Computed example of a mutant assay.
Amino acid sequence: MKDGSLLIGCASKDDNARFKKIAQDKLSDEYEIKEVKGILPRVKIVGLTQNLEETELSELFEYVVKTNGDLFNLDSVCRVIKVYPTKKNNKVFQAILEIDRNTYENLIKADFLLVGYDYCKIYDAHEIKRCFKCSEYNHSA
């Protein structure tokens, strides 16, 4: 990395723990080993007819899991980041959800989600900062 540090990714938590132990055993005390938490993927659900912030979100998640049981499993992680109306119609809402990797893959393949009587389209919600001045990434100006 820019500051001379090294970033290493492992395939699983077990591999991560094994690598960390080996690095601590082999390297001197001059080196600092930190574990960086990963970012959960996000999806955008478009086509909701009611504002989800007005309802209890935990109840909503349970209902969505019951309705779309094949897309979620018992270990699914889901957190509502933001709910807001669409630009074209302020009576139609969209939600940004942060979910675990397996659920993300299932939802992207399914392409839709049933929320109550709403048939909602699912999109990948990636946000990449790009500079308006130099067109480089990870900064805005």
Rank of each mutant, 00 (worst) to 15 (best):
L97H: 08
K133Q: 13
E59T: 01
G116Q: 10
L74W: 07
Y117Q: 13
E105S: 09
L74I: 07
C134L: 06
L7E: 15
S140T: 10
N16I: 10
K91G: 07
I99W: 01
F93N: 04
L7N: 14
N90T: 06
K37E: 14
L74E: 13
D111C: 09
E32M: 06
S5V: 15
A95V: 03
I22V: 13
N68D: 02
N51M: 03
L40F: 10
K34S: 14
Y84C: 15
E35C: 11
D3R: 14
F112R: 08
L7R: 14
I45H: 08
L113V: 00
L40A: 14
N89G: 11
N90F: 03
S28N: 08
F61C: 07
D3H: 13
N68W: 03
E59P: 04
K13H: 14
K13V: 13
S140N: 04
N89Y: 01
L60N: 09
E62K: 01
G69Y: 01
V92F: 10
A95H: 05
N16P: 07
Q24C: 12
A141V: 10
I33C: 13
I45T: 13
E98H: 00
I22G: 14
S5I: 15
C131S: 11
I96C: 03
K129N: 10
E62Q: 04
V77G: 13
L6C: 09
F61K: 10
V83C: 14
K2R: 08
D75T: 15
Y31Q: 15
A11P: 15
G69M: 04
E30D: 13
E98Y: 04
E62S: 01
D3V: 15
D124V: 05
L114P: 05
H139I: 01
I81S: 15
A125L: 11
K20G: 12
